[in-house]
Design a protein around this nucleic acid. Structure first.
Lengths: 225, 225
DNA sequence: TCCATTGCCTACTGGGGAGTAAGACTACGT
DNA sequence: ACGTAGTCTTACTCCCCAGTAGGCAATGGA
């Protein structure tokens, strides 16, 4: 039997299924992140994964299924990163700080995965929107929990109607800050987390202590006509 | 819908170009908002506008161009709403409050237009992303200006490196809040504006006065094991 | 050595939807 | 009446790309 090894295999051939699947997912995440779901073509994903198209379908199924698989994997990584079990007994503020820090570090290390989760259109009717909104909900719930916990000692613990929108806003602010960060990369993850922490926690602290902003009396807010 | 009452108009026919163009834009905004750019079909837009496809192309051009025209129109409305000239001499805080209020009212009244501007994927390489990011930049700049103005009296006026990310975060928080609002419609625009104002302005006020949050010393941010 | 299993490929089909050709209908001026 | 300018339509073409049919090749057990 001639071992015709002219050179190293130009294309890694005949790998066990498990390895291939990881390769494919890596390639898919990359391509989906670069072009978005719609503009990403299965051909390009196949080529990036150094594999032929039928393999794609044999292993991960149709485009929707493949995308969902990507989202699940990346979302799991993200949620694990920001939801990891930290040493018990940390004050909510410190926990939030820690998790924000983890978040920005995750994004920095895993840029493609982040863009996959963030830059898709939120159009209802798509098969994958459910999957996409899930991580956001989980993150929001996590933060809402922290906010509620932070006020359990107070006379008036915050109700979900208070913490939920606050948490949602915080998540949105975080996403927007990441986008800004991409255009100003000269900051550390810690610095970004610090920014977000300052923007929100200070106001939160004030709120908890009963202070709140209100419009000055004369500039009326009623319908201006 | 097919009220064939054999009376005058089975279908509004032969309208002057100007009127048709508005009809088409209205239909396009609706359809793009509902399905997103990619899943919206020119056929559906044509049908919604009660017109045939070639008219679409004759009047507004290709799909990209049509979408951009929609974005321009809706973005102009939005920017005009939040950037409108208010009575002079208002304090920055009151201005911000006013504009946030206008913003939430705009979204409430003009839901389709808002979704058009917000729910598309931000994938680089698309012909329309430039157009889409523009309104965000304008809004951010507007707010950044307010923040800067609010601190001109202070010993240390805030620099763009401070105000910009803050403004970007605020815009992101606003977008996220709107999304939350859509799922909890039992709040007024004023209430939502109030929420956002409280979340951010209080923290901002604290920051300006030199207070800032910092992690408690001992709980280190290194590996938590 | 030969078969079976499983990884893997080239080369196709089919459909959806963007964009168009070519002509019909209406209104108005002369 | 008759042209002509501008509105409007039916009925296509064509391309891109998701998804597939059917066959080749390597490994491993007998």
């Amino acid at each position: 039997m001639e071992d015709h090894r002219d050179s190293e295999r130009p294309r890694s051939r005949r790998l066990p299924r498990e390895v291939r699947e990881r390769q494919i997912l890596d390639a898919a995440v990359e391509v989906f992140a670069k072009h978005g779901f719609h503009n990403a073509s299965m051909d390009e994903i196949a080529e990036t994964a150094s594999i032929s198209k039928p393999m794609l379908y044999a292993y991960l199924g149709a485009k929707d299924a493949l995308f969902i698989a990507c989202v699940r994997r990346e979302a799991a990584k993200l949620v694990e990163a920001i939801g990891a079990d930290i040493g018990t007994g940390l004050a909510p503020a410190d926990q939030l700080w820690h998790r924000l820090h983890m978040f920005f570090e995750y994004v920095q290390v895993n840029k493609a995965g982040w863009q996959l989760l963030h830059r898709q259109g939120d159009v209802p009717g798509e098969p994958y929107v459910q999957e996409l909104s899930e991580w956001r909900e989980r993150a929001t719930a996590l933060i809402a929990g922290l906010l509620a916990e932070a006020t359990t000692d107070q006379k008036q613990p915050m109700q979900p109607e208070q913490t939920e929108p606050f948490a949602a806003a915080l998540v949105g602010a975080g996403e927007a800050l990441v986008e800004w960060w991409f255009q100003h990369p000269d900051f550390t993850a810690e610095g970004m987390a610090m920014r977000l922490m300052n923007l929100l926690w200070l106001g939160f602290g004030e709120l908890v202590e009963g202070r709140s902003w209100f419009p000055s009396a004369k500039t009326e807010t009623s319908t201006p006509s």
